[in-house]
Simulated scan of single mutants.
Amino acid sequence: MRKKLFIGSTIVAAIVLIGAMFYSLPFYITKPGMAKALKPIITVKNGKKDKGNFMLTTVRMGQANIYSYAEAKMSKFEEIYPESEILNPTETEEEYNVRQLYLMKDAKLNATDVAYRKAGLPVKFKYNGIYVLSVLPNMPAYGKLKAGDRIFKVDGNTFSSSNEFMDYVRTKKAGEELTFTYLRKKQTKDVKIQVKPFKQEPKRVGIGISLVDDKEVIVSPPVKIVTDEIGGPSAGLMFSLEIYNQLTKDDLTKGHQIAGTGTIDVDGTVGPIGGIEQKIVAADKAGAEIFLAPNEHGAKKSNYRDALKAAHEIGTKMKIVPVDTFDEAVTYLKKSPQK
């Protein structure tokens, strides 16, 4: 009898323990990701070869369960974030992932724009339509359009910007029906959606989507950037340096392993990102010798200062370099010694 009770209680305990692995908490955990060479990711046709590497750094993130939450509490380089700090109000996890992929796409566009112009080459853009980031519940588009859909026609009309799209929708009256032509998973579809007043702004009508322009950059020689499912804008600086290095004569790497992070604006400004301490850990493990960090114009709590602190804590010999612009990064690398 005791043996049966022991076996039964053991099975129950095992079920509870396994169930805890799949029970999600309203928190997200971030931890050090990877540092990956950009040469296999970015290819400029007939581009120059470098002796060293520019490296992309990432942070791993996932929703917490009981075990990952407890582990993160005890780990120095794992962070816990409430769900509300990761997802926007009404945003689903799927929509969050779509938003991150769009931010990556935008980072690639900006990086290409900056690199080619700095190399003295022309840049043009082709407008493809409207990119749906999220769909509001209780609005007409809900259940008909999804995050990631690309709308390229409305009532058979094409537009040159999201502003033109919104201006067209605003001319309609509540209850009027529009036909949206969109692309989803490489399939073109049509859907009819009525416009409806917004609850917060009854005088304004719409279908209830948040959107951005979907465009592509046209450059010569062409460049290909393959990022698969990596999301977010933080690789912008490193993308721009790798592209520029393949376009120009001198090798900025000079044989070094150069990691870094930071967003890139079209004017070449480098912006701050999250999780820089975790990226320092990832870069050090990958053997990086130099790490370029957003300086935020010398702010007391800048990415650069956080990176310095993390580098000191792990005892790395990696040199942490503050940068505010693409030009500053290039100037530093041109002055650095050949390995």
Rank of each mutant, 00 (worst) to 15 (best):
F27A: 08
I42C: 05
I11C: 08
L56C: 08
Y28V: 09
Y67V: 06
G19S: 13
K31C: 10
K48G: 03
V59H: 08
Y69C: 06
K36D: 02
A70C: 12
L56P: 04
G52D: 01
T57M: 11
L38C: 05
T57F: 11
N65W: 05
Y23L: 13
S24W: 03
K31Q: 13
L17I: 12
K49D: 01
I29H: 03
P26K: 15
M55I: 05
D50H: 00
P26C: 15
I18P: 00
I15K: 02
M21H: 03
I42F: 07
E71I: 14
V59D: 05
G62Y: 12
L38H: 06
I11F: 13
S68H: 04
F27Y: 15
F22Y: 09
I11A: 15
F27C: 09
T58F: 08
T30Q: 11
I18L: 15
I15H: 04
D50V: 00
Y69N: 04
I29A: 08
P26H: 15
V12I: 13
N46A: 13
M34P: 14
M61Q: 15
A70R: 12
A13N: 07
I42E: 00
R60V: 11
L17W: 08
P26V: 13
D50W: 00
R60S: 15
A37Q: 03
P40N: 07
A14P: 01
K45Q: 14
L38P: 02
K51S: 14
L38Y: 03
I41T: 14
K51W: 01
K48N: 15
Y23C: 10
M55V: 07
L17E: 01
K49M: 01
T30C: 10
K49S: 02
T57N: 13
F27H: 09
T57A: 12
I11G: 07
G33Q: 06
M34H: 13
